[in-house]
Design a protein around this nucleic acid. Structure first.
Length: 855
RNA sequence: GCCGGGAUGGCGAAAUCGGCAGACGCAGCGGACUUAAAAUCCGCAGACCCGCAAGGGUUGUGGGGGUUCAAGUCCCCCUCCCGGCACCA
């Protein structure tokens, strides 16, 4: 008869609220609990230093409350950090706040609150949530980007950038979001709309802006990606596309029949100079200066060009550029091909973009699909200049092959494309009508924002001296309080006379401060360096400390930062390296991008009303269950569909683990502890051995996951299985009247606690205490598995006949192939199945399976 | 259009190297305990068919083809979903 529950279940209840409260208080009382060892102290001590491990989760914007995506992100990072502490690493695991930005201004307008006050109170609230979830952060090195002790170093870096000509005034068309009333970087424009206001089309305005020379590092940013093997391929590809390097040539065509005042030639960019004998027209972007000059003399052309400009603008905003039907207008001008002197027509076409290359192309309809479409439509000549090396492989035009041979190209005929590319550029350069050219899609990073809640740009305009940097000794330039934030279009700081009007640092005459602030992506471009030395008041950080901790060993965050933040921060690292502040070329060795948290198959959003609040989950199921569920639902890199019932299931599991320990451990009793700590003897019942086997198999599984795939869902499943096995062993033992020694039970309980700790630290600490352990669980050694103990006595081997499962046999795990085959052939069902058939082949996979091929 | 990722029970998912598909959990069903409920514990469970049952058979990882003794996993073709890029010359 199964034993009754009442015998086994005294009134032990898992009360997460009580346990978590208790440990949260203890942890809060010890601020040094999660502090890393100081590298200087490590070197001084002379002992074998612990290896360092810098694990970082992307810092949140303090919107007021954590969302489930944060919880999932931090649960992953915290599990890893705790595991690495247990593995004996010197772990740096910091947290901070990306706390400048527009939402604070909006809140200020809406609720009449100071951005600073709103932001700081949000930070306090979110920090409470993080504490409640038991995340182990080194709060002593917290970074809050909106405070002067941080942003003064943004200003310091700005001065350094200026000094090294990496930041400059750029007059150009800029992206302007009317909703934000500010400029946006190219990276912040999504489908022609603002990244924060996805339905607000971005306008183009002529403005003078501060821009960072990110393009000085284009090649290094691109080529460096090859070495970032610890980054997801997806992110590397996205960055490659974003940088968009294209190697080609510029070729200048002389123009005829153009107005006297206009340029007398036009330069095109091409990646296929080898096809230039196939150029049968030149195509210009409608905004091209030559077109402008032509249109001035031709009102009909002007009307058509204006319509084309409007069409392109519209299509950019709707994201339809790329699918527009190609059309164009001929002009009166004629271009001369510098290679063969051929006179070809000049057209204006809607598929040519002014902001890429030179805004002009040579059109080769024989070997480019777009040009082909256009030429076909307007009856422009189409000429073959490339043929396949093997004539049978020629296809109809347009023929795009890059490994062909040149034809119809005078002296260049029968060269391969690759040879022609090289030689023809050389000729163009030699003759002065062309040159090799590398074009990038990446543009310099415009960092001025006409906003209040950001870092003031430390520059002063003086009528006599021009642009004058604020002297380093005058930093920080403080953000004034109580500023009128009404969205009128100008920089709010411009409305604060006490801020604007300052003497020129050079000549002392009245000057005006720069009133724009920095893009908030400046803040996040280097914040992780500040963590190593957050209180430094004489430098952004100590170089020795940064060189100890960097690069970041593991960075964890959402894929939505694959381009913006992760390109800017790579740029910043390279600039700091060139300044001599750091030695590393890249900030991050390994990057992990987590999947989104969905609800009912869709994104959680306020408008859909499907947002699950972490606070509510914590109140219902506890912090441990909430965070552990975010890991249990699926693998961390996959999208996860939230289900409240799943959290409840995890809570039940934690309860089971806790109650097992509560019933079986008596850590307060010295006699029990003495008995529990006796080494396990070899003389064990089958039940006890099975339990130990399961334990050691579980240790292996979980250790392997931490070292490899991070499929923490299967880790938690494995611990569930182990706990189930502990209950089952108890059950089996009670039925077969065998006892499982206290030492074996204690070993299982101790290890379950250690394994559980990275995922559910509160309950693990409570269990650790119940076991009478007084050491700090955070740094308790990660368990080692014993391969001998993990080995099965017997394994069940499936027997297939012609690939179909027909029977199973038990054999020793190291049984030889012969022994397995014999055992399989002796099996009753096999014997029956072989009746009247012939054994053609027997496939034996050692320790795995036997497949008998019968005919 | 191009580049990634994905599609497995009623649901979330597992299967790490080509070797028992569905571990673990949720929901469900049956049972124990209870005056009852909650909580807890034990058990069952892909689908279909045969059988009173024990058991047996067929089928099954988006669709179609292929390689193999053996395919969720490898190859070819296709559909749908998610993410990114896109007249980039």
């Amino acid at each position: 008869m199964p034993r009754t529950i009442t015998e086994r279940e005294p009134e032990v209840r898992y009360e997460p609220q009580r346990i978590e409260q208790k440990w949260a208080e203890r942890w809060a009382a010890d601020p040094s609990l999660y502090a890393a060892d100081d590298p200087a102290a490590i070197t001084a001590s002379g002992g074998t230093p612990k290896p360092k491990y810098y694990v970082l989760e992307m810092l949140p914007y303090p919107s007021g409350a954590l969302h489930m995506g944060h919880v999932r992100n931090y649960a992953i990072g915290d599990a890893l950090a705790r595991h690495m502490w247990m593995k004996g690493y010197n772990v740096l695991h910091p947290m901070g706040w990306d706390s400048f930005g527009l939402p604070a201004e909006n809140a200020a307008l809406k609720n009449n609150r100071e951005p600073r006050e709103w932001t700081l109170s949000n930070i306090a609230a979110m920090k409470r949530q993080m504490h409640r979830l038991g995340f182990a952060y080194d709060w002593a090195n917290e970074v809050t980007t909106c405070l002067p002790d941080y942003y003064r170093w943004n200003q310091w870096f700005f001065l350094k950038l200026y000094e090294h000509d990496k930041v400059y005034r750029k007059k150009s068309k800029v992206n302007w979001c009317p909703e934000c009333a500010t400029v946006l970087a190219n990276e912040q424009v999504v489908n022609g709309c603002c990244w924060r206001h996805e339905t607000t089309p971005v306008e183009q305005r002529d403005l003078e802006q501060w821009a960072c020379r990110t393009t000085d590092y284009s090649d290094e940013l691109l080529d460096g990606l090859d070495k970032l093997e610890g980054w997801p391929e997806k992110v590397r590809t996205m960055q490659r596309n974003w940088i968009g390097r294209s190697k080609g040539a510029e070729v200048t065509f002389k123009l005829e029949d153009v107005p006297a005042g206009a340029a007398q030639d036009v330069t095109v960019f091409t990646t296929r100079i080898d096809t230039i004998y196939g150029a049968t027209s030149v195509q210009l972007a409608p905004e091209h200066p030559v077109v402008k000059a032509l249109a001035e003399q031709d009102s009909k052309l002007r009307a058509e060009v204006d319509a084309m400009i409007a069409e392109q603008k519209q299509a950019k905003q709707t994201g339809d550029i790329g699918t527009l039907e190609k059309h164009g207008v001929p002009t009166s001008a004629v271009a001369v091909n510098p290679f063969n002197g051929e006179r070809i027509p000049v057209w204006v076409a809607n598929y040519i973009l002014m902001d890429y290359g030179t805004g002009a192309i040579m059109s080769v309809p024989g070997h480019d699909e777009r040009d082909f479409e256009f030429a076909t439509k307007y009856g422009i000549a189409i000429r073959r200049v490339i043929a396949a090396a093997i004539p049978e492989q020629d296809t109809e035009l347009p023929f795009i092959a890059k490994d062909g041979l040149l034809v119809n190209s005078d002296e260049w005929n029968s060269l391969t494309c690759a040879e022609a590319l090289q030689k023809m550029v050389a000729r163009a350069e030699d003759k002065g009508f062309g040159n090799p050219k590398v074009t990038y899609r990446l543009k310099d990073w415009g960092i001025s924002r006409q906003r209040y809640w950001g870092t003031p740009i430390p520059m002063i305009y003086c009528d006599d001296c021009g642009i004058v940097p604020v002297p380093e000794s005058d930093l920080p330039v403080l953000l004034p309080p109580q500023v009128d934030l009404t969205l009128t279009g100008g920089s709010p700081l411009g409305r604060v006379p006490e801020f604007v009007n300052v003497p020129c640092p050079k000549c002392g005459k009245p000057g005006r401060r720069e009133t724009d602030t920095m893009d908030t992506f400046v803040d996040s471009s280097w914040y992780f360096y500040r963590y190593v030395d957050a209180h430094n008041s004489t430098a952004p950080f100590d170089s020795a400390k940064a060189n100890y901790w960097f690069p970041i060993d593991q960075y964890i965050g959402g894929v939505e930062h694959a381009i913006l933040h992760l390109i800017y921060s790579r740029f910043w690292t390279k600039f700091m390296r060139d300044l001599g502040l750091i030695k590393n070329d890249e900030p991050v060795t390994r990057l992990f991008t987590l999947g989104m948290v969905l609800k009912d198959g869709g994104k959680m959003s306020k408008s859909l009303g499907n947002v699950v609040s972490p606070d509510e989950m914590v109140a219902r199921f506890g912090g441990d269950a909430t965070r552990a569920y975010t890991l249990f639902a699926t693998a961390p890199d996959r999208e996860m569909d939230w289900q409240d019932a799943g959290v409840e299931g995890v809570q039940r599991f934690l309860s089971r683990a806790y109650r097992y320990v509560a019933r079986n451990a008596n850590g307060e009793d010295a006699a029990w502890r003495a008995e529990a700590n006796v080494p396990v003897s070899d003389d064990l019942s089958a039940e006890a051995r099975a339990l130990r086997r399961k334990l050691h198999q579980t240790i292996k599984r979980i250790s392997d996951e931490f070292a490899g795939r991070w499929h923490f869902n299967t880790c938690i499943a494995a611990i569930m299985e182990l706990v189930n096995a502990m209950y089952a062993a108890e059950d089996a033992a009670s039925q077969s009247k065998v006892t499982i020694p206290v030492t074996v039970v204690a070993e299982a309980m101790r290890n379950v606690t250690l394994l559980l700790h990275p995922f559910a630290p509160y309950v693990a600490h409570e269990m650790w205490e119940m076991l009478g352990e007084s050491s700090n669980l955070l740094k308790a050694p990660w368990p080692k598995y014993d391969a001998e103990l993990a080995k099965e006595d017997e394994v069940e081997i499936p027997i297939q006949i012609n690939g179909k499962l027909r029977s199973k046999i038990l054999v020793a795990p190291d049984a030889t192939d012969d022994a397995m085959r014999e055992a399989a052939l002796a099996d009753q069902r096999v014997v029956a199945a072989m009746e009247g058939k012939q054994l053609v082949k027997a496939i034996v996979v050692k320790g795995k399976l036997v497949n008998l091929v019968l005919r």
